[in-house]
Computed example of a mutant assay.
Amino acid sequence: MAAFGHTFPFYAGPKPTFPMDTTLAVIIAIFLTSLIIFIIILPGIRGKMRLFWMLRVVTSLFIGTVILAANFSSEWSVGQVSTNMSYKAFSSEWISADVGLQIGLGGINITLTGTPVQQLNETINYNEEFTWHLGENYAEEYAEALEKGLPDPVLYLAEKFSPNSPCGLHGQYRLAGHYTSATLWVAFLCWLLANVMLSMPVLVYGSHMLLATGIFQLLGLFFFSMATSLTQPCPLRLGSAMLHTHRGPAFWITLTTGLLCVLLGLAMVVAHRMQPHRLKVLFSQSVGEHAVPEGNPEEGGFLSPRYRSTAESPEPQNIPLSEASSKAQCEEHPREPNCAL
């Protein structure tokens, strides 16, 4: 390191970064492809139902995309600050930079961007991730960061979330991430079942699954909020400024989608009770194909006969009988008016 003339520790340089999380990019690309395919086949749907099908597919794809994207997002809690701080350990040189912290369900992401980017004859632009997923060891990743010699602000924030830190942020957010991620996966399963049932003649169960999708999303938000508020906030001081975190976009968009699912599910349940035939027509399900035989459900449903009233009975028809049949009838009933003739 001394041969290069740099102050200890020396970090070879920032690794190239993709401008967007690759997992989120893949999820969004898959759902956009599905939407484009549906738009291509949309002209094959006739009449006014074309608009409803378009709205239904867009809403369903939006809900599924939000559930998956939020599960893998690193922006459940975010914070950013611009300050002057030391750049390397055991060095008196300071830099002016923007420090960002994104906390997700599976780890944290720390960004360090110089203002300007070129300072101290180096490019200050770092984007480092530390995870606590099942099977991942946060302590090992932090030890590797120390060996690489990452900038001091990155190591400072990463150390605050390490298992041995007195702040307790590691256990706090790790617990919140596990429970929230589990409930979001259940919500995604309910979303799949809702789409299947809404394509079949069981709309009431589809509405129940859509309602369950929203409930599990809201339950995940409840777990995240409760787990992250168990301990006192740990001060994050960077130079002369304090870094404060707040709810990120993933939290608020999950809240919006969960409320949307609950409202749509309740509306469908009420519509099934009030106007079931119109609801079937709205979902392009023929009422005649699945019509229930008339009968009194309190007296046995399908097995109970339905007696017609006099007004519903067909009018009697005079069917002429043969001559032999007429004579036989007159012998049995001589007082009939036809026999008198």
Rank of each mutant, 00 (worst) to 15 (best):
Ala3Cys: 07
Phe4Ile: 09
Thr7Arg: 08
Phe8Gly: 00
Ala12Thr: 09
Phe18Asp: 06
Phe18Gln: 01
Met20Phe: 14
Thr23Gln: 06
Ile27Pro: 02
Ile30Asn: 03
Phe31Gly: 00
Phe31His: 04
Leu35Asp: 01
Leu35Tyr: 04
Ile37Pro: 00
Ile40Asp: 05
Ile41Ala: 07
Leu42Asn: 01
Lys48Asp: 03
Arg56Asn: 03
Val57Arg: 03
Val58Ile: 02
Ile67Ser: 00
Ile67Met: 01
Leu68His: 05
Ala69Phe: 03
Glu75Arg: 14
Ser77Leu: 13
Val78Tyr: 09
Trp94His: 10
Gly100Met: 12
Asn109Ser: 10
Thr113Arg: 14
Thr115Ser: 11
Gln119Asp: 06
Thr123Trp: 10
Ile124Thr: 13
Asn125Ala: 12
Glu128Ser: 10
Phe130Arg: 02
Asn137Gln: 14
Glu140Gly: 03
Lys148Trp: 11
Asp152His: 12
Leu157Gln: 08
Ala158Met: 13
Cys167Met: 08
Cys167Ala: 07
Cys167Ile: 11
Gly168Thr: 07
Leu169Lys: 05
Ala176Lys: 02
Ser181Thr: 08
Ala182Ser: 02
Cys190Thr: 13
Ala194Cys: 09
Leu198Glu: 10
Val202Tyr: 15
Val202Phe: 15
Ser207Thr: 10
Ser207Cys: 14
Leu210Pro: 00
Leu211His: 10
Phe216Gln: 14
Leu218Arg: 02
Gly220Thr: 13
Met226Ile: 09
Pro235Ser: 13
Met242Tyr: 03
Thr245Gly: 08
Gly248Thr: 02
Pro249Asp: 01
Phe251His: 11
Trp252His: 15
Ala271Glu: 03
His272Ala: 11
Arg278Ile: 04
Val281Asp: 10
Ser286Ile: 00
Gly288Asn: 06
Glu289Asp: 14
Ala291Asn: 08
Pro293Gly: 11
Glu294His: 07
Phe302Ile: 12
Leu303Gln: 04
Glu312Ile: 01
Ser322Thr: 11
Ser325Tyr: 01
Ala328Cys: 00
Pro334Lys: 02
Leu341Asp: 06
